[in-house]
Nucleic acid binder design. Sequence first.
DNA 1: ATATTTTTTTAGATTAATCTAAAATTTATT
DNA 2: AATAAATTTTAGATTAATCTAAAAAAATAT
Lengths: 221, 221
Amino acid sequence: MTSFTEENYLKIIYKLSAETGSEVSTNAVAELTLTKAASVSDMLRKLSEKQLVNYQKYQGVRLTELGEAVALKVIRKHRLWEVFLVEKLGFNWDEVHEIAEQLEHIDSEELVERLDEFLGFPKFDPHGDPIPDTFGVMPELRYQNLSEIAVGQHVVMVGVSEHSPTFLQYLAKIGLTLGCHIVVKELNEFDKSLCVSLGEAPSLFISHEVAKNLLVKSIKN
Amino acid sequence: MTSFTEENYLKIIYKLSAETGSEVSTNAVAELTLTKAASVSDMLRKLSEKQLVNYQKYQGVRLTELGEAVALKVIRKHRLWEVFLVEKLGFNWDEVHEIAEQLEHIDSEELVERLDEFLGFPKFDPHGDPIPDTFGVMPELRYQNLSEIAVGQHVVMVGVSEHSPTFLQYLAKIGLTLGCHIVVKELNEFDKSLCVSLGEAPSLFISHEVAKNLLVKSIKN
DNA sequence: ATATTTTTTTAGATTAATCTAAAATTTATT
DNA sequence: AATAAATTTTAGATTAATCTAAAAAAATAT
């Protein structure tokens, strides 16, 4: 029905679309599929004929409901296999992606359901990413506040619970953006302020007041 | 290195070659790959260029050592995955072939070795077929005599331990051929003779003397 | 031993997925 | 708003795996 290649395109369009919330550009897809824009154009026309995407020339692409269902099935398989590789076969969480990229295309509904059961119906993969259920429904994400994170932990910023412009402008000014990686370096006992590092940049001080309003996702290490 | 398709050809050539012991014909390969002879000719030329087979036009094909090593790796993976599907996921032994046909092409040495360990280094798959080790070495086959088989068991005839023409002619006469499926229906206590059935054919009486000389492989059910 | 049949190979097309180079469209800049 | 720059699409090729139809070789039967 859908080829290995088509499934990869759908998965990538799903991910890009989830990030931006709007149409996905040809170039963005080309970058992740490791192909050229010309190849992407061809494939988008084909996926469009198959009713898997809505595609208007020069206007970017979006998944149809059908396309999203297919993408979610692939993502479900990918993440379940990652759990299997880590929990059952003892791989490290950073060694499993490439293998799961292959396993995600194995075609058998029965296999997926039995694997899910064998693994105890996990809700998150070893990277903390949520595993869609049979119907494509994602589990609730269990984000934490940065203020709850222990020293030494590595997290990704996934949102804020305070939405005032002042607060958001402040975040932009100190370099805290959605998706940035944060390592908690130090916790000051007296005022609960944090010293954190952001990738290469010099360390940053964050007050408890600010930390309470930052939603983060922890990254296993 | 070797594509999905090439691996399937090598696997099929291995199996045909193991049965006949000599060169494999183009048509025989075409039948099992579900393609036409013309396609097989093309592929044999290609596999020959890659040093995976020895192929002389019109003279049939044989695996090289390299080709056999690749085929055995695929067979190893196929049979290990079948054990996984039956032992861990609870599939019936007759439901797993199609899924294993896909899983056998997943490319990761590390995965195969860890799977083998996870399964407890099984020597035979759920159909009783031997699983080659990492180096492509098949375990000793543990055939049984028909006389040792319990009532209700389903076996396949794989050989004889008496090779006299009289005996072999007798077998042919009563319809016992290599590869035929036998179900043990009844055991007569007083002379240890058996009543067995062979597929659709009417039941057959076999003396203990004959049963002792029939090598069979049991089939899990 | 010749003719017929069967098997196998070659020649020429087809499909899926990709590419490069050129043309078309959209976005950004003066 | 006109032009320049960037993005996207089309046109035309390429590669892997397959096909049909025709030619060549081998096996079989008279």
